[in-house]
Amino acid sequence: MSKFKNFLEALGGAFHLILETIKIGFQRPIYTKLILDQIYHIGVRSLPLVLIVAASSGMVMALQFGYGLAKFGGKLYVPKIVSLSIVREMGPVFACLMLAARVSAGITSEIGSMKVTQQIDAIRALGTSPLKKIVFPRLTACMIAIPMLSAGAIIVGVAGGLMVGSLELGLDTQFYLQKIFTTIKLNDYLSGFGKTFFFAFFIASTSCYYGLTVTGGTQGVGHATTKSVVTSSILIVAGDYFLTKFFLVIEQWL
């Protein structure tokens, strides 16, 4: 019960931290260089991981569905099923789970180490704000880089499925491409892509919060990093259900 209470406290704390950060983040001066640095660290350096995972998951899904559906004569449905599930669910969720592990761990351990070595206190003592200097650049970078990486993951995932479909399952490439374009509608893409902004928010808020609340030296940094990865992953997986419902309702309105 106390663990659940701590979890809820952390969620509240993270949300409050982000509200405070947004309040002062857009006031001058805006540290553009720090934001660009973070986009490089969070975005560019995560690119190989995200693309490899996306390609593999697309390939594996195509393979599994191909052999599974072949038993019922349904191999021709592979392009539709694989591309739709990657665009709406698997692409964004897998990419963000990978990023939750890599980015959350990186941010929390970096901020946590700064906390235990009094560098966060030094930022404050030198008349500057850790929210502006540390949290805002990471939050902004996550909100920009994570959706872009996820968009890339969706494309590469579908391409992975296409590759296995044509090379391994013997499906015609033209046929596969045609099925992708006739199946995937803009709202499918926006539903999957739209979620990634929420996932980016979950990753940035929890990782910064756990980093800034580290206590207990280097061991505390380790604990905080684990908690950060677990919490952001849980938020992504659990939040995905509610976000799917939310986007389905929006699609019905449109």
Binding site: T117, Q118, Q119, D121, A122, R124, A125, L126, G127, S129
Partner: peptide
């Protein structure tokens, strides 16, 4: 508030025990 303290912190310097340099 933290924002108001910025002006105070320009007048008052703090020398940390371990230097607290940005690594």
């Amino acid at each position: 508030t933290e924002k108001e303290l910025i002006e105070i912190r320009k007048k008052v310097a703090y020398v940390f025990q371990n230097g607290a340099l940005f690594d």
